[in-house]
Computed example of a mutant assay.
Amino acid sequence: MKKKYQIFVSSTYHDLVEEREQVIKAVLEMDHIPVGMEMFSAADEEQWKIIARQIDEIDYYALIVAHRYGSVTEDGIGYTEKEYDYATERGVPILGFVIDDSAPWPRNKCESESKAQQRLTRFKAKVKSKLVNFWSSKDDLHGKFSISLMKAITGNPRTGWIRADQVTGAEVTKELTRLSSENASLREQIEKAKKKEDSQHDEIRSAIRILSANTRRLGARTKEKPRWEDVKYKTVTLADVFHWVAKNLIVENSSVEIGKNIAFHLVGSKYFPTFPIGKNFVTDILADLAALDLVEPSKKKHSVSDTASYWSLTKLGKQVLKEFRRVLLEEGIQASETIAEED
């Protein structure tokens, strides 16, 4: 009886579309079953459970690594690395393919932030601690993967899958019934996950649209001109203000410091050290951001003597900030630390 083996193909997403297609093509050419990450969007714990269940049932795990680390979980580990660690933990044979450092590669498909680069370096070191193949192009990857899979099947044969008409017996019928039921359940879960993701994307886009459409007149006192009547005001969007303050709200920040963050982007480091912008402006801005469910009072505990009010990003706020930063990185734009004076 001829067995078909199920191979999970894992990698970062946008930078390795063509390379992953080549590996999936090789799997199909060898008459086996590819499980591509295109089926999933590992953005939350519910979808991760689906992926983990798939890894539990695969025969081989193929990992493709280039010059991006990919999206990161709340625990600070990338989803690709999380898949790799889980497959290793489950004892699934790993077929690792790491790009050759000398191979040409587009700069826009490389990590630009130092923190992501450090994570990628550590991940590559982890993968290279086991036997891996180095590739230089998608065609090179196709050939090396095919050879590697054949060697794995010969040297480490797994349970695999066989056609129902090649086997008989009540146990087989029972197993097919179970798999059919499980497949229907998985499809239902995937559909729910996709609907949830679409809803989240709509919510993010709506928040960004509202932030961009609303403007505020803001000004800050400076050390040279500390009087309120000397303040020069500028028209900025709520999107600008959110981007200025959100980075410091990932954990939490006080209302006073939020005012200083805004003042810094308005007048630079010369802002007046005590309440450089009016308390009422900070209060109004926080109220607007809270109305959009982007910020909320911090849940962290503080000493009784600390009378300051603290704020932090909501889950939606973190997603909106992530979308802002992603767009800036994709377009190769450095986030501006100041805004230009109005004419």
Rank of each mutant, 00 (worst) to 15 (best):
I94A: 05
L95M: 05
L95N: 01
L95Q: 01
G96T: 11
G96F: 07
F97V: 05
V98W: 08
D100S: 05
D100L: 06
D101K: 13
D101Y: 01
S102I: 13
S102D: 13
S102C: 15
S102G: 07
P104C: 09
P104H: 04
P104M: 00
W105A: 05
P106T: 00
R107A: 11
K109L: 05
E113W: 03
S114M: 14
S114D: 08
K115A: 12
K115Q: 09
K115V: 07
A116H: 07
Q118D: 09
Q118G: 07
Q118R: 10
R119V: 02
L120K: 10
L120F: 10
T121W: 00
R122F: 01
F123D: 13
F123A: 02
F123M: 09
K124H: 04
K124A: 05
A125K: 00
K126D: 14
V127I: 15
V127S: 09
V127L: 15
K128W: 09
K128I: 05
K128Q: 13
K128G: 01
S129N: 03
K130I: 12
K130Q: 15
L131T: 10
L131H: 06
V132A: 04
V132F: 08
V132S: 12
N133Y: 09
F134W: 03
F134P: 01
F134T: 03
W135R: 08
W135M: 08
S136A: 11
S137F: 02
K138G: 12
K138E: 14
K138W: 10
D140L: 02
L141Q: 08
L141M: 07
L141H: 04
H142L: 08
H142Y: 15
K144C: 03
F145W: 10
F145K: 12
F145Y: 11
S146C: 11
S146V: 13
I147L: 09
I147W: 04
I147K: 09
S148Y: 07
L149H: 08
L149N: 06
L149I: 05
L149Y: 02
K151N: 03
K151T: 08
A152W: 00
A152R: 02
A152P: 04
I153H: 02
I153N: 14
I153D: 11
I153E: 00
I153S: 04
T154N: 14
T154K: 11
G155D: 07
N156S: 07
P157I: 06
R158A: 11
R158L: 07
T159H: 00
G160A: 12
W161Q: 12
W161S: 06
W161N: 05
I162T: 12
I162S: 14
I162Y: 10
I162K: 12
R163N: 05
R163F: 10
A164I: 15
D165G: 09
D165H: 09
Q166F: 01
Q166N: 01
V167C: 11
V167S: 00
T168W: 04
G169V: 12
E171C: 02
E171N: 12
V172P: 01
T173H: 08
K174F: 15
K174Y: 09
K174T: 15
E175K: 09
E175P: 00
L176Q: 12
L176S: 11
L176P: 01
L176A: 12
T177L: 15
T177Q: 15
T177P: 03
R178Y: 15
